[in-house]
Every structure is written in C-alpha cells, then in structure tokens.
Amino acid sequence: MTLDDILAGLFPNGSKIDMTGAMIAGQATLPDGKPIHVLGVTQGQPLGADEAIVLAGRVIEIVKSGDRAPILFLVDSASQRMSKRDELLGLSEYLSHLAKTLLLAEAEGHRTIGLLYGGSAAGAFIATALATGTLVALPGAHPAVMDLPSMARVTKLPIDVLRAKAEATPVFAPGLDNMVLTGGIHAVWDEAAPLAPQLAAVLQRPQGQDDRGRLGTERGGRRKAAELAARVAFAAASHHGARHG
C-alpha cells in the first residue's frame, strides 16, 4: 500500500499532514471525532541526526500541548544513516533522544502506536517503531537488523547455510514473520479490511507494561527472555543472592 492509500484508509474523516523530505508530521481526525497526531519516516530513507531532531522536537511539542491525544508513528525507513558526519555529531544521542521523547509521550498519557508499512532496520527501527507503546505492521513490511548477505559476510557463513538455519528459527533472520514471532510486533493488520477500525481497536487496548517478552514466549520465537527477566527481578528483590568469587 502507498502512504496516500494508508492515510486515506486510516482517516476517512480527513487529515492534514505535511511532508518535509522523507518526514511527515500533522494531525488527523479519528472516526469518533477525536484528534490523533501523525508523524513518520517514509520512502525507505535512512534516519540521521538531522531527521531525528526534527521528529523529536515535534513529539516534545505534542507532550507540552497537554492534549494527551494519541500519536501514530508511520515507519518506512532504511537503517540509521551510516556516515562519518552523523557519527562525528553523536548520532547515538539523536536516535536515543527521539526514542526517549516517544517513551516520554507514552508515559505522559499519549498512546503511541507505531505502524510499520515498509522497511526499517537497526538503529532507525529502535529509535522509531520499537520506541512506541504498541507496534503494528501491514503485510509486506520488512523489518531487519541486517540483511542476510551482510550477515553472511560478518558471520563468515555461506548464505545458503544461513538461509537453511533461518528456516529452523525466527531468532536471527530478517522479516516480518520473525519479528512477529519474537514478540516485537503486536499484530499484522489485514490490508483488505478497512484500516480505521483496526486502528481504533489498537487504541482501545489498555495502556500497560512492555509485553513484548510475553508475546515472544507465547508465540514461541523468544522463549527465554520474559522468564529470565522475571527471575532476575525476583532475585534482586529477595535478600539472598548467591555469593561467590
């Protein structure tokens, strides 16, 4: 689906969304008449310091407005921008800052919904989609940490071997199905059905704790993370940790 199709499907009551480069920002009206903020990175572009700071600034303005309206963050990006300039300027702080503003918004009572409708990878994925309270995707979305050819180069394994291993586990290979199985994506929407009710359903979910570990356990793609994190918290709370040298 194109971005225009998606926006039209999400907001039949209309929206006012500006595009600056590959970034979008604006507002729309939900079917129940309430407002929703819309932000995004589009066109499969990389996310660098210049883009992250603009998006973060918008999120801060929204939080300061005190309207507590939900924020929909649309994502179709590449990875973080890989450049000497971005790293020289401290890209990690810019990406973290954007993620922090989204986490702040969620904590301050704005529902933050990520909608992955294209690609995203590595630092860009962490700073945008994965920093929202609930991440959903459209079929055809293709999240990745690293593509398989690059992975083959780094792990020094033939790509055929990697492909065979990827059949056996969702834990490392790129792709939407694997990110769903490991609990990173809450739900994949039905693109044949109207989008607005599907967004309304997500907005009706109670705001709560990070449940990605639980989803990973239930779906079988990440069986250990939730249980282990809970055991650590239990060990820390109890007064007798094991001592050893």
Binding site: V145, V171, G183, G184, R222
Partner: peptide
C-alpha cells in the same frame, strides 16, 4: 539479531 534488537528496545 531479532532477539537482541528487541532486548535493546526493552
């Protein structure tokens, strides 16, 4: 990679 990426986000 997928488990690691999600761990970072968590």
């Amino acid at each position: 990679a997928n488990a690691g990426e999600l761990a970072i986000a968590e």
